[in-house]
């Protein structure tokens, strides 16, 4: 239907959302982990966990976005 091309606000929003969410999630993981480490004096344990969590969440976000795009692509083809 060409709905994807026409709906530029949604495409723009999704693009900005993906980029900023990935960055923010990783940053939040690292910073939150670092803050917890400082708080409990535990070296780098929480930082490592936080980083891993952040990267995992980033992966999850990307995976979801990818699924969504491929789903709408299929819907368009039908």
């Amino acid at each position: 239907m060409g709905e994807n091309k026409k709906n530029w606000p949604k495409a723009l929003a999704n693009a900005i959302n993906l980029a900023t969410s990935v960055a923010a999630v990783i940053a939040l993981g690292i910073l939150g982990g670092g803050w917890l480490d400082k708080r409990f004096d535990t070296g780098i344990v929480f930082t490592a966990i936080g980083t891993l969590l952040g990267v995992a969440t980033a992966g999850k976000i990307m995976w979801e976005r990818f699924n969504e795009i491929s789903k709408t692509g299929k819907k368009d083809k039908k």
Partner: peptide, 20 residues
């Protein structure tokens, strides 16, 4: 199992708005 990831994402949203 995804609860922490989902929560992290949910918190990251307003945080990214605020900081940007």
């Amino acid at each position: 199992l995804m609860l922490p990831l989902n929560l992290l994402e949910e918190i990251a949203h307003p945080l990214s708005l605020f900081l940007r």
